[in-house]
Amino acid sequence: MKILLVEDDRKAARLLAKGLKEEGFAVDVAHSVEEGEEQACYMDYNLIVLDWLLPGKEGIVLCRELRRRGIRAPILMLTARDAVSDRIAGLNTGADDYLTKPFVFEELMARIRALLRRSEPAQPGALTVADITLDPGAHRVTRGSRPIVLTPKEYAILEILMRQAGQVVSRTSLAGQVWKTDLIGIDNLIDAHISNLRRKIDPPDARPLIETVRSRGFRLVKDEPGAMTDEG
């Protein structure tokens, strides 16, 4: 299960993300409305935990925009505002639940599990390219009948490549989506993760799926693979 946490307080975000990961969730963190909107509109999340008070624009603005864009993942609003009018405003904007600060982590988990149970029919379906399958709901990857264990970064890269199968994904795009940074200084890091990912999903006895396209980026082939141009 994949959760997007939008919280500008970096210490609080770090602690919440740590707790959620210990509960078995994959967690992406955004610290502003702009970051949250970019991530939520590109990646499929099972749930979004959204702080109301964010710098610049409030979380309720992001909630409204995500619903306008057709994002249907459950949204749990976190806020210190406890007036009935605030709760009504949050729910009317598109939030599915509302938790007032301060709260205990166990209550947060209870709310999250309840929202996930209610949203199970709408969870994203598995992605399949050639004989490799990525299940966002179960956070599981297989090639044929063989399970593949990936690190969080490798999983994120593979999901991006699978969602754009047959298209070239640039290093700049991967840097922005996976590392939330520009390309400067991380070329070798990207190449190392691609190399590790390739070893895991493209063993010697299997048909290669990941291509490196010289000077452009990487591509996950959908049908018959073309020439491998640069194994960097």
Rank of each mutant, 00 (worst) to 15 (best):
A192Q: 14
P208H: 07
V221R: 08
V213Q: 06
R199C: 12
R171G: 10
S173Y: 08
Q177I: 12
W179K: 05
G176I: 00
G176P: 00
R163D: 02
F218A: 02
S173A: 14
G185E: 04
L174G: 04
V169C: 07
L197K: 00
L209I: 06
V169T: 13
P203Q: 06
L220A: 02
N196L: 11
D187E: 09
R216V: 07
H193K: 11
G185L: 08
Q164A: 14
A175M: 07
I210N: 00
R199T: 13
I184V: 14
I186M: 05
T212Y: 07
I184T: 15
G166Y: 02
A175Q: 04
S195C: 10
L183E: 10
A206Q: 14
W179L: 10
D187A: 08
P208S: 10
T172D: 09
R171D: 08
S215N: 15
K200N: 04
I210A: 01
F218I: 06
R216S: 10
F218N: 02
G176L: 04
K200L: 13
T212D: 06
A165E: 00
S173F: 14
I194V: 06
R171C: 09
M162E: 01
R163G: 08
P203E: 04
V221A: 10
G166Q: 09
G185R: 05
R171T: 08
